[in-house]
Amino acid sequence: MDEANRSDPPKWIQQHAVYQDLMHLDVGDSAQVYAFFLVYMDLTEGEEIAAVVGVSCPELQAVLLEGREKEGEPVQMIYPLPSHRSIKHRELRSILDRGAPMLLCAVASDSSLVYQTV
């Protein structure tokens, strides 16, 4: 997802309603928005997590996902992170301080996804 090595997302992604909504959140990091979209599609298409919604995280200038693995279970925060970006302890803490368990998802340049519970 390195900005210099990644072209714009395919047209079908750019036209998707969820992607367009994300672009209106003015995150400022197109690589993170693209990572969010890939993770969103993986979770909703695979039906791994129910009721997935995007949540703005201004302190990280990022968009997080929020959802439940099963109905009635607590909400989880999912942080889609392009694999070329590093993350600092205080950034993780700002997400964990929201009071929900966190799932970190590293998104590789080939669109591979790796999930890690934090």
Rank of each mutant, 00 (worst) to 15 (best):
E45R: 15
S86E: 14
A50Y: 00
P82R: 04
L22P: 02
S83Y: 12
S83K: 11
K11A: 11
E91P: 04
E71W: 07
S109Q: 09
Q15S: 14
F37I: 08
L92I: 12
N5W: 13
G67D: 01
D2M: 13
H84D: 12
V114T: 15
A51D: 11
L25Q: 11
A4G: 08
L64Q: 09
M1K: 05
L113H: 04
M102W: 05
L25S: 08
D29Y: 04
C105H: 11
V63L: 08
A62W: 02
E45D: 13
M23H: 08
D29G: 00
L104F: 09
S94E: 04
V118A: 09
D26R: 09
S112A: 15
G54I: 01
D26W: 00
A17T: 14
Y19M: 13
M23A: 12
G72T: 12
E73H: 10
E59C: 15
V75R: 14
A17V: 12
D8V: 10
S30A: 07
H84R: 12
D97M: 08
L103A: 06
R98I: 02
A108W: 07
M77L: 13
L96Y: 01
L92F: 08
G99T: 02
G28C: 02
S30Q: 09
M1H: 10
I49G: 03
S111R: 15
I78D: 00
I13P: 00
Q76P: 00
Y40D: 03
E59L: 10
V118C: 10
I78Y: 01
K11H: 10
F37L: 09
A100P: 00
L43C: 07
N5A: 14
P10M: 03
R93P: 00
A17R: 15
L92S: 05
Y115W: 10
G28A: 00
V27D: 06
Q61A: 11
T117S: 11
L60R: 04
I87Y: 08
R98W: 03
V52E: 09
V33N: 01
R68Q: 15
R98M: 14
G72M: 12
T117V: 06
I49E: 03
D110K: 04
C105P: 06
I49D: 01
G72L: 12
S109T: 05
L60M: 10
Q20G: 02
P9V: 07
E73Q: 14
G54K: 07
V53R: 15
E66M: 15
Y19S: 08
M102S: 03
S7G: 14
M41Q: 15
V107H: 01
F36T: 05
R93A: 04
Y19K: 07
V33S: 02
V27S: 04
V114A: 15
V75Q: 13
M1P: 04
V53Q: 14
V52N: 06
R68F: 02
H24G: 03
P10V: 10
G99Q: 03
D21G: 10
I78P: 01
E48P: 03
K70P: 01
I95D: 10
E71Q: 11
E73Y: 07
G46H: 04
D29T: 00
P74A: 04
H24D: 09
